[in-house]
Amino acid sequence: MDLLQTATTLYNSLTHLHHTLREAHATMPSSPFHLATETLDFLRLRLPPPLAHPRVAIVCGSGLGGLADAADQRGLREEWAYGDVPNFPLSTVPGHEGKLVFSTMGPRQVPVVLLVGRAHFYEGHSMETVTFATRLCRLLGVETMLMTNAAGGLNPAYRVGDIVCLNDHLNLAGLVGFHPLRGANDDEFGVRFPPLSDAYDLPLRQLAHRAWHDLRRQTPGGRAMHEGVYAFVAGPSYETRAECRMLRLLGADVVGMSTVPEIVVARHCGMRVLAFSLVTNQAVLAPTLRADGAELQGLSREELEALQSRGRADHQEVLEAGRLAAVDMQGLVLRIVSEL
Rank of each mutant, 00 (worst) to 15 (best):
D2C: 11
Q5P: 03
Q5R: 10
S13Q: 11
L14R: 06
T15D: 10
H18M: 10
M28G: 00
L35I: 07
T37A: 13
T39I: 10
R46A: 15
G66I: 04
D72C: 14
G75I: 07
E78D: 05
E79Q: 14
V110E: 04
P111W: 06
V112F: 09
V116R: 00
A119V: 08
H120G: 13
Y122S: 09
G124I: 06
E128A: 15
T144M: 06
T148Q: 04
A151S: 14
L154F: 05
N155Q: 05
V164Q: 02
C165T: 10
N167V: 13
H179G: 12
P180W: 08
R182C: 14
E188N: 15
P195L: 12
P195S: 15
S197V: 12
P220F: 13
R223W: 04
A234T: 07
E239N: 11
R245G: 15
L250P: 01
G256P: 04
M257W: 00
A266E: 00
A266P: 02
R267T: 10
G270V: 09
S300I: 12
S300A: 14
R301N: 12
G311F: 07
D314H: 09
H315K: 05
Q316R: 08
R323H: 08
R323I: 07
L324P: 00
G331Y: 03
I336C: 12
